[in-house]
């Protein structure tokens, strides 16, 4: 199994631990990856706000690079998946759109033929590697842990452009959590928004969202959260202390990137998975599975 890896900006910027843990986990699972070093940012839905055609063109350029490699794209960011999945879907489905965007790329000698698929690591694990195969790689079952899945927005909505999980009733993260022998926690906030897009400009709203979601998970006795989106990770981790102040309650909920949680169950060390980079300490959780940070 071979994929063109689109890391997105976060894994190369504020979340190097996501990149690190992805590399360990994919190689253990036998997924060969070719990193797309020359791909530009997907635009995170922000470039679209200024100029939708520009956002499509930037993404079509990325798709063309994968097409030239003869590979499909793997994303490791829920936001990248949402943005690129939607762009790809529209380029393939909407009459005349691909031609219009290719005309913008032509002076640069780039052309996208609509033959690439974009899939999140989570989907590849659940849909292609398979849960049983994942289970076979578990050497350190996370038996005592109650893990709350946090999907975030873009890996689920708008569902007509995504279509892997049922947005009303997603199950893929739960499947992975169970495969690692941990207990998936059910709570309402798991499909809601973490508030990341607002955090610079409307911090009180954003931390209100962090607080509300995390409190629900806490009330269901979660030990930690796992998310397929590094932007969710940043908001839930970095702003957790401020959210605690806002809701007047201690949360102390470590947030794991998807490959970090899988990596723990595969026996990688906390150092290999970059756990020390989190602002909310993962120590308690790691102790529960008899490890030291």
């Amino acid at each position: 199994m071979k994929y063109a890896l689109y890391t997105g900006c976060a894994a190369k910027g504020a979340c190097p631990e996501l990149y690190q843990s992805t590399m360990h986990v994919t190689s253990r699972l036998g997924i060969e990856v070719v990193e797309m070093l020359n791909a530009a940012c997907c635009g995170a839905g922000v470039i679209t706000e200024a100029d939708p055609d520009l956002a499509l063109a930037i993404n079509a350029r990325t798709f063309a690079q994968a097409e030239a490699l003869g590979l499909n794209i793997m994303t490791i960011c829920g936001t990248c998946q949402g943005v690129m999945g939607m762009a790809n879907h529209r380029l393939k489905a909407e009459e005349g759109l691909l031609d219009r965007i290719n005309a913008m790329l032509e002076p640069e000698g780039v052309k996208y033929n609509g033959r690439v698929e974009v899939k999140h690591l989570l989907w590849i694990i659940v849909g292609e590697i398979g849960i049983e195969a994942l289970q076979r790689h578990v050497t350190r079952p996370l038996e005592n842990l109650r893990i709350a899945p946090f999907y975030g927005c873009y890996i689920l909505r708008p569902s007509k452009y995504l279509g892997f999980d049922d947005p009303e009733n997603p199950v893929s993260l739960e499947k992975v959590i169970s495969a690692l022998s941990a207990h998936p926690v059910d709570y309402e906030g798991k499909t809601k928004c973490c508030g990341f897009p607002l955090v610079l400009e409307k911090e009180p709203i954003a931390i209100g969202m962090v607080g509300a979601n995390l409190k629900e998970a806490k009330d269901e006795l979660a030990d930690a959260l796992v998310t397929p989106c590094p932007l969710c990770h940043m908001n839930l981790d970095i702003y957790q202390e401020r959210a605690e102040k806002k809701i007047g309650e201690k949360l102390a909920l470590p947030i794991f990137h998807l490959p970090q949680l899988i990596g723990l169950a595969m026996g990688f060390t906390p150092k290999e998975l970059g756990l020390s980079r989190h602002l909310v300490s993962t120590e308690k959780v790691v102790e529960k599975i008899q490890l030291k940070v």
Partner: peptide
């Protein structure tokens, strides 16, 4: 608006 897409959905 946080662009969560819930209203669209």
């Amino acid at each position: 608006c946080t662009r969560c897409n819930y209203c669209v959905e």
